[in-house]
Computed example of a mutant assay.
Amino acid sequence: MTEKMENKEAPRSVPEPHIPGARYAIDPLAFFFALVSAPVVVALLFFWMLAIPVFAVAVGGLPYLIVGTPVLLIYLHYRKGSPQGAAGCAAITVIVGCVLALTSAVIHGDLHEMDGILTFGITAAVHATTWGFAFGKLYNRWRSAVSCQPLPPYPNQHLKGPIPC
Protein backbone atom coordinates (compact mmCIF):
# COMPACT_ATOMS: atom_id res chain seq x y z
CA MET A 1 0.00 0.00 0.00
CA THR A 2 2.83 2.43 0.76
CA GLU A 3 4.30 1.83 -2.68
CA LYS A 4 1.08 3.02 -4.27
CA MET A 5 1.00 6.14 -2.08
CA GLU A 6 4.61 7.04 -2.87
CA ASN A 7 3.84 7.17 -6.57
CA LYS A 8 0.79 9.41 -6.06
CA GLU A 9 2.53 12.39 -4.51
CA ALA A 10 1.49 15.72 -5.87
CA PRO A 11 4.02 17.12 -8.34
CA ARG A 12 6.00 20.00 -6.90
CA SER A 13 6.59 23.13 -8.85
CA VAL A 14 10.28 23.48 -9.52
CA PRO A 15 11.49 27.08 -9.16
CA GLU A 16 13.58 28.42 -11.98
CA PRO A 17 17.25 28.32 -11.04
CA HIS A 18 19.14 31.54 -10.55
CA ILE A 19 21.33 32.35 -13.53
CA PRO A 20 24.80 33.34 -12.23
CA GLY A 21 25.67 36.89 -13.23
CA ALA A 22 22.16 37.70 -14.43
CA ARG A 23 20.78 41.18 -13.94
CA TYR A 24 17.13 42.18 -13.92
CA ALA A 25 15.35 45.41 -14.73
CA ILE A 26 13.34 46.85 -11.86
CA ASP A 27 9.79 47.98 -12.52
CA PRO A 28 9.82 51.39 -10.75
CA LEU A 29 6.08 51.78 -10.34
CA ALA A 30 5.59 48.29 -8.90
CA PHE A 31 8.67 48.78 -6.68
CA PHE A 32 7.39 52.06 -5.24
CA PHE A 33 3.86 50.83 -4.58
CA ALA A 34 5.07 47.53 -3.09
CA LEU A 35 7.63 49.32 -0.90
CA VAL A 36 5.10 51.77 0.50
CA SER A 37 2.15 49.42 0.80
CA ALA A 38 3.91 46.36 2.33
CA PRO A 39 4.03 47.76 5.92
CA VAL A 40 0.47 49.05 5.60
CA VAL A 41 -0.82 45.67 4.38
CA VAL A 42 0.91 43.87 7.26
CA ALA A 43 -0.50 46.41 9.73
CA LEU A 44 -4.01 45.96 8.31
CA LEU A 45 -3.75 42.17 8.51
CA PHE A 46 -2.43 42.05 12.07
CA PHE A 47 -3.78 45.21 13.75
CA TRP A 48 -5.79 43.05 16.16
CA MET A 49 -2.55 42.07 17.94
CA LEU A 50 -2.62 44.93 20.47
CA ALA A 51 -1.98 47.46 17.67
CA ILE A 52 1.70 46.45 17.59
CA PRO A 53 1.98 46.40 13.76
CA VAL A 54 0.36 49.84 13.53
CA PHE A 55 2.84 51.19 16.07
CA ALA A 56 5.65 49.47 14.16
CA VAL A 57 4.72 51.34 10.97
CA ALA A 58 4.93 54.63 12.85
CA VAL A 59 8.27 53.79 14.49
CA GLY A 60 9.98 51.72 11.81
CA GLY A 61 8.52 53.16 8.63
CA LEU A 62 11.19 55.78 8.03
CA PRO A 63 14.16 53.44 8.69
CA TYR A 64 12.46 50.87 6.47
CA LEU A 65 12.27 53.36 3.62
CA ILE A 66 15.77 54.79 4.13
CA VAL A 67 17.61 51.48 4.55
CA GLY A 68 15.23 49.14 2.77
CA THR A 69 15.04 51.02 -0.52
CA PRO A 70 18.71 50.66 -1.54
CA VAL A 71 18.97 47.14 -0.12
CA LEU A 72 15.91 45.95 -2.04
CA LEU A 73 17.02 47.76 -5.21
CA ILE A 74 20.37 45.98 -5.12
CA TYR A 75 18.71 42.66 -4.28
CA LEU A 76 16.18 42.94 -7.13
CA HIS A 77 18.85 43.97 -9.63
CA TYR A 78 20.69 40.66 -9.17
CA ARG A 79 17.87 38.26 -8.19
CA LYS A 80 14.40 37.42 -9.50
CA GLY A 81 12.78 38.76 -6.36
CA SER A 82 11.10 35.91 -4.51
CA PRO A 83 9.14 36.83 -1.36
CA GLN A 84 11.32 34.51 0.71
CA GLY A 85 14.46 36.15 -0.64
CA ALA A 86 13.18 39.64 0.13
CA ALA A 87 12.22 38.54 3.65
CA GLY A 88 15.64 36.99 4.20
CA CYS A 89 17.36 40.08 2.83
CA ALA A 90 15.37 42.29 5.22
CA ALA A 91 16.12 40.02 8.19
CA ILE A 92 19.85 39.96 7.43
CA THR A 93 19.89 43.75 7.09
CA VAL A 94 18.30 44.18 10.53
CA ILE A 95 20.63 41.63 12.11
CA VAL A 96 23.71 43.34 10.64
CA GLY A 97 22.42 46.71 11.88
CA CYS A 98 21.86 45.31 15.38
CA VAL A 99 25.32 43.75 15.47
CA LEU A 100 26.85 47.08 14.44
CA ALA A 101 24.82 48.94 17.08
CA LEU A 102 25.79 46.42 19.78
CA THR A 103 29.45 46.61 18.75
CA SER A 104 29.31 50.39 18.93
CA ALA A 105 27.69 50.24 22.38
CA VAL A 106 30.38 47.89 23.66
CA ILE A 107 33.21 49.98 22.19
CA HIS A 108 31.85 53.21 23.68
CA GLY A 109 31.04 51.59 27.03
CA ASP A 110 27.28 52.19 26.85
CA LEU A 111 26.38 48.77 28.19
CA HIS A 112 23.06 50.02 29.60
CA GLU A 113 21.92 50.61 25.99
CA MET A 114 22.24 46.94 25.07
CA ASP A 115 18.79 46.02 26.42
CA GLY A 116 17.12 48.67 24.26
CA ILE A 117 19.12 47.66 21.20
CA LEU A 118 18.23 43.99 21.63
CA THR A 119 14.54 44.72 22.27
CA PHE A 120 14.31 47.03 19.28
CA GLY A 121 16.36 44.60 17.16
CA ILE A 122 14.18 41.57 17.88
CA THR A 123 11.01 43.53 17.18
CA ALA A 124 12.54 45.05 14.05
CA ALA A 125 13.68 41.65 12.79
CA VAL A 126 10.16 40.23 13.07
CA HIS A 127 8.54 43.21 11.36
CA ALA A 128 11.24 43.56 8.69
CA THR A 129 10.85 39.91 7.76
CA THR A 130 7.07 40.20 7.41
CA TRP A 131 7.37 43.50 5.54
CA GLY A 132 9.99 41.99 3.21
CA PHE A 133 7.78 38.99 2.50
CA ALA A 134 4.79 41.26 1.83
CA PHE A 135 6.97 43.44 -0.40
CA GLY A 136 8.06 40.39 -2.41
CA LYS A 137 4.49 39.17 -2.85
CA LEU A 138 3.19 42.60 -3.89
CA TYR A 139 6.13 43.37 -6.18
CA ASN A 140 5.82 40.04 -7.99
CA ARG A 141 2.09 40.58 -8.41
CA TRP A 142 2.44 44.12 -9.82
CA ARG A 143 5.66 43.91 -11.81
CA SER A 144 5.72 43.86 -15.59
CA ALA A 145 6.67 40.80 -17.61
CA VAL A 146 9.76 42.57 -18.96
CA SER A 147 11.27 42.89 -15.47
CA CYS A 148 10.98 39.10 -14.97
CA GLN A 149 13.41 38.35 -17.80
CA PRO A 150 17.20 38.65 -17.36
CA LEU A 151 18.82 41.60 -19.07
CA PRO A 152 21.26 40.91 -21.90
CA PRO A 153 24.91 40.87 -20.82
CA TYR A 154 27.05 43.95 -21.07
CA PRO A 155 28.95 44.30 -24.33
CA ASN A 156 32.51 43.01 -24.02
CA GLN A 157 31.69 41.38 -20.68
CA HIS A 158 34.08 38.55 -21.46
CA LEU A 159 37.08 40.94 -21.50
CA LYS A 160 39.17 41.22 -18.37
CA GLY A 161 40.25 44.65 -17.20
CA PRO A 162 39.03 48.01 -18.46
CA ILE A 163 36.85 48.15 -21.55
CA PRO A 164 38.84 49.60 -24.47
CA CYS A 165 37.58 52.80 -26.10
Rank of each mutant, 00 (worst) to 15 (best):
F135K: 12
L102F: 10
A101M: 14
A22G: 06
I52E: 05
T130C: 00
A43V: 05
P53F: 07
V36T: 12
P39N: 08
R143Q: 08
C148V: 12
E3W: 06
N7W: 13
F46E: 00
G132I: 07
V42A: 13
A87C: 06
A91Q: 06
K160L: 15
T129L: 06
K80Y: 03
V36F: 03
W131Y: 12
N7H: 09
L65G: 09
V94C: 03
G97F: 06
G121I: 06
R79A: 03
E9K: 15
P70L: 13
D110V: 08
Y139S: 05
I163C: 02
I19K: 11
G121F: 03
E3N: 15
V42S: 12
G132S: 11
E16C: 03
W48Y: 12
P63N: 04
A105W: 04
K8G: 01
F133E: 11
P162Y: 10
A58K: 14
Q84M: 10
V94I: 10
T123A: 15
P39F: 03
L35V: 07
P83G: 10
I92Q: 06
Y64V: 05
I19A: 02
G109K: 02
L138H: 01
P15G: 12
L76A: 02
W48L: 08
G136K: 05
V67Q: 00
L45S: 08
F31Y: 15
K80D: 10
T69F: 07
Q149D: 14
A145V: 13
V99F: 04
H77N: 08
T119F: 05
Q84V: 13
T69R: 06
N156W: 04
L65M: 14
